[in-house]
């Protein structure tokens, strides 16, 4: 990676940096499938928020293969794998009465293959 200088900064910012990887990795899930978030509590970095662990949702869409943050933060590699938007009904996450009273509601969270099991 080049050092950011007055000459290259605009170019580099414009180009950006995608977490998308070219690796051919098969998806463990497909849209419409029910999944449950693993009850993971690593001491290192993770992007599976506490409030969603153990909850059941439905794969909404597959975003393709991306860098896995847990291993990337630990310096142990990019662990290419699929990321999905997963839909969780409000009542599944917060109980039947505690959220969105009287209306339909859902939370969509982006989760990687390694965070998910088939429900």
């Amino acid at each position: 990676m080049p050092k950011l200088t007055a000459d290259n900064v605009e170019d580099i910012l414009r180009k950006g940096d995608s977490a998308r990887l070219p690796d051919k990795v098969s998806a463990k899930f497909e849209p419409g499938q029910q999944v449950v978030v693993r009850n993971l509590n690593p001491l290192g970095h993770t992007r599976a928020p506490r409030y969603i662990r153990g909850k059941t949702g439905i794969i909404d869409r597959d975003h393709g293969v991306m860098i896995f943050p847990d291993t990337h933060a630990a310096g142990t590699g990019k662990s290419p794998q699929h990321v999905y938007s997963v839909r969780f009904e409000a009542a599944e996450v917060w109980g039947p009465d505690s959220m969105f009273p009287g209306r339909r509601g859902a939370i969509y969270i982006d989760l990687w293959d390694d965070y998910l099991d088939r429900a």
């Binding site: 599976a48 969105f100 209306r103 509601g105 859902a106 939370i107």
Partner: peptide, 28 residues
């Protein structure tokens, strides 16, 4: 957890039959 209350802080009230979807940007 409370998007209806959050929207109220912003002065927004939605009809009751509107479904609310909250997107938590946990990935890239």
């Amino acid at each position: 957890r409370d998007p209806v209350g959050v929207l109220k802080d912003f002065g927004v009230t939605l009809p009751e039959d509107v479904e609310i979807r909250v997107w938590d940007s946990t990935a890239e």
